[in-house]
């Protein structure tokens, strides 16, 4: 195992009954990087995380964290975890929850330190049960950081957060990366992955269908993005050759188009709609790449 790989997963299989959740899954997480694990619902992301945390055994294949088996106490003392949603005692105050979780670690932060670090000091003396959904997520994020983790698992961390809280969480993640922490992030907010991730892994049907930096992933699909204000509908243009996706965003028609069909598609748009304005062509973003990759994997 390379010294900088904190997580190494090789050819892992996992089935639940007749459903194969992971089908030859390979992945590494390197020291000091933020890796975004992307995939549609049911792609196998949650199963992959459960296996990495030692909560489920793999049917076949190898998983190592810090060179050890998942779920060992040495591994658990080096990681932080934030699940999508979790029940915490509503009667306890926020700092009391943090005190409990910090106690699990040899060098855990104090409750006040972690509250300050995560910009949540205002929640210190509030009962967990009276917090809003977003505030609960902030506390769960603070709990994930309690043990000064070397490796952090974050499952949809910003769901339910307001703009400022999301901005604060992103800032904290960047600070953690600077401190040498590695982060495995799953998110449905692709702009979040685009803004934060050093590398992307796209999972579909339990297999990795694309991986690399954001730039590498978007370049592999040779797709361009056309944006315009048009009377044409996504349904009309989505059947055109080379058009992989067509949607309306903020009142504009947005097309992901194969690089080879770019010129033809632009000409056809202009011919089909004489009122078309604000035409822009750009390199496809991660969202376009994700949609195209997952669409291809379904076919």
């Amino acid at each position: 195992m390379a010294s900088e790989d904190l997580v190494e997963i090789k050819d892992v299989y996992k089935s639940f009954g007749d459903t194969r959740a992971l089908d030859g899954f390979d992945m590494t997480v390197r020291s000091g990087e933020l890796l975004a694990l992307l995939g549609e619902n049911g792609a196998g992301k949650t199963t992959a995380i459960s296996l990495m945390l030692g909560l489920e055994p793999a049917d076949a294949g190898q998983i190592h964290l810090f060179g050890e088996r998942p779920g060992s106490m040495d591994v658990r003392r080096r990681i932080g975890v934030m699940f999508q949603d979790v029940f915490l005692a509503p009667e306890l105050l926020v700092h009391e929850h943090l005190t409990i979780f910090s106690s699990y670690y040899p060098n855990g932060y104090s409750a006040d330190e972690i509250l300050e670090f995560t910009h949540t000091t205002a929640l210190r003396n509030r009962k967990y049960g009276v917090l809003s959904g977003g505030q609960k997520r902030q506390v769960q994020f603070a709990i994930a950081l309690c043990g000064r983790p070397q490796l952090l698992f974050l499952d949809e961390p910003t769901v339910g957060l307001d703009v400022q809280a999301r901005k604060d969480l992103w800032a904290t993640l960047r600070q953690l990366i600077q401190q040498g922490c590695s982060i495995l992030l799953t998110t449905h907010y692709l702009e979040e992955a685009e803004a934060l991730a050093d590398r992307i892994v796209v999972l579909a049907k339990g297999r990795v269908v694309s991986s690399g930096t954001v730039k590498e992933v978007t370049q592999t699909i040779s797709t361009r993005r056309i944006t315009c204000v048009s009377q044409l509908t996504p349904e009309e243009v989505t059947t055109w050759p080379g058009v992989s996706t067509a949607v309306v965003e903020d009142g504009k028609l947005v097309l992901a188009v194969a690089h080879t069909e770019l010129e033809t598609t632009v000409r056809r748009l202009l011919a089909a709609d004489s009122t078309l304005v604000d035409l822009q062509v750009s390199q496809a973003g991660l969202a376009d790449a994700f949609l195209k990759i997952t669409k291809e994997s379904r076919q």
């Binding site: 945390l53 658990r76 699940f83 979790v86 029940f87 699990y104 670690y105 709990i143």
Partner: peptide, 12 residues
């Protein structure tokens, strides 16, 4: 049912 034990098992 609501994941606290799972979280504690994943943590230390």
């Amino acid at each position: 049912q609501y994941g606290l034990l799972r979280l504690k098992q994943a943590l230390a």
